[in-house]
Computed example of a mutant assay.
Amino acid sequence: MHAGLRGGLRGRGAVFDADPPGLAPRLVGLLPFQHGSSPYEHPKELPFVVFAGGRGLGKSALLDGLRDAYRGRTPVALIDCEESQFAGPLMDDRPREAWSPVAQALLTIAEQLAEPVTGAGRVPFPRLAAGLLAVAAGGWSDRDVPGIRQETERILLLNGTGARVAGSAARWVGRVSVRLTAAMSGTGPVAEPIIEAALEAFSEGVSPTHRRLRKAAYWYRDYPNAGGSPKLGLILVSGQLRAGGGSRAHAEHHLVRALLADLDDAYTGALQRPHRLGRPVVLVDNAHTAPGSALVGSVLRHRAEGIADRVAFFAGLRGQGHPALRDAVRRTLPEVARSSGWTPDTSISSRALLVPLSPPAPDDTRK
């Protein structure tokens, strides 16, 4: 076990060990706190790992440790689903029905995953940016134009420029935000004219920024009932999220797919970087609350439908009886030290690997 681990992680060598590799390096493909690679235990489909148990067992410390172990070497994101940003919209005049904790979580995750890592460039998220922009537009009014421009710029920066980038890319984002707010009539629904203005802006120019967003917009032409129209697909995403219930869940599920598709492009598509090693890591703490439960369920469903992704997901869950995990493969922490023993069946929740935590002891994984 790595000597740099904090005291709260003693006895967690089943997750962090390097020789032989523990659970994390076998799933991520990289040794923790080091620059070496590790063989994959699951080279194709991998389990969604859920660390479960009551308060005080170190679930949050374990996820923090995973972030520290891989940050700067592979894209890593950590969200705590109990944070206030997931409780309601940040803009005072945003209708709650036009805001989604899942959409907010995806924005926060993508911003962290887009941070540069050693030997590779930023991961762009054009599909997710297009979808989040459509969702945001469903709640805009002309009462807070500065706030709308700020939100637009935050979303569009997911397209690969990054929050700290200046120059032509940042100026283009600023121009687009001005153009979108100008499309607001001040009366009636604004989502459709804003989406139309965004698509027009994406279609102009030949820079990588324009090309990525053009391709991303066309991805939404396959949205159910869009009839091959990217514009209608994005309008449906926006409208269904506002509708609530099953329609909202469907729109959120598609936004999760957008995040995974963008990551897939970064690792295997035309945008693949030759030095991008291992897998991206997404860490979801307090996953028993929104948006965690919906996010976990959506990823499991995609995998059960045969839609592969290359993301190493780890979550912390209070308790062990979540309905979405009733068929999860269950293993103790010592049992996963050298092999997960995970094989899914036909059920959705079998794509999860549930690992109950007990109070750590230094020799837990060395018996």
Rank of each mutant, 00 (worst) to 15 (best):
Gly54Met: 03
Ala198Ile: 10
Ser339Phe: 04
Gly292His: 00
Asp309Ala: 06
Gly160Ser: 11
Val50Gly: 02
Val165Asp: 14
Ala290Tyr: 07
Ala198Asn: 09
Gly239Pro: 00
Asp309Gln: 09
Ala290Trp: 04
Thr268Pro: 00
Ala270His: 08
Ala120Ile: 13
Ala361Ile: 11
Phe16His: 03
Ala182Pro: 01
Lys215Phe: 09
Ala290Ser: 11
Lys59Ser: 13
Ile195Ser: 01
Gln272Tyr: 07
Val28Pro: 01
Ala3Gly: 14
Leu271Val: 06
Ala249Arg: 11
Pro356Asp: 07
Asn225Phe: 13
Gly297Ala: 01
Glu82Pro: 00
Leu90Gly: 14
Val296Ala: 00
Gln34Leu: 13
Ser293Gly: 04
Leu283Ile: 14
Thr181Pro: 04
Ala61Phe: 14
Ala129Leu: 06
Ser347Trp: 00
Ala170Thr: 08
Asp80Gln: 14
His35Cys: 06
Gly341Leu: 06
Arg318Leu: 08
Val299Gln: 02
Pro43Lys: 07
Glu153Val: 12
Gly121Phe: 12
Phe33Val: 06
Gly4Lys: 04
Val145Trp: 07
Arg154Tyr: 05
Leu27Arg: 04
Asp364Lys: 04
Phe313Glu: 00
Asp80Thr: 15
Ser340Met: 10
Pro116Met: 11
Ala261Cys: 03
Gly22Asp: 04
Gly58Gln: 06
Ala361Met: 13
Lys231Thr: 13
Arg257Thr: 08
Val256Leu: 09
